[in-house]
Amino acid sequence: MTLATHWHYWVVIALMMTGLHIVIARRNYVKKLMGLSIFQVSVIMLYVTMGKVAGGTAPVYVMEGEGHDAVPNLDVVYSNPVPHVLMLTAIVVGIATMALGLALVVRIKESYGTVEDDVVIEKDRAEEESLES
């Protein structure tokens, strides 16, 4: 393990942590979702980095021959298709989560008048105290 062989992973980890930090540390809900988006894209990057084969091409067969007789050249080095497939799914899951999260943010804004976490918590507490008495 050296810098030359593993630096891709390390940069990707740094990117992941940039996103995760935004999610945890920021109080603005929209910002949290932006962080989540960066976090998820970086995880996708991790998988894609793992799927890369040195000198490999995209996992689409290089064909030899014409028309119906064409056969793929299996001596060409291809990258691993599996991480790509898995990450197509992950991208979809990401956008689905994002859409739902943003819809919730809109409703929170409408009912609380704010999208900042600390204000929402404060309003909830005030409401709870008024119900208690």
Binding site: T49, P59, H84
Partner: peptide, 11 residues
């Protein structure tokens, strides 16, 4: 660049 063309397109 990492040859994940389908992923790139979708992203």
């Amino acid at each position: 660049l990492l040859t994940a063309v389908d992923v790139a397109f979708t992203e």
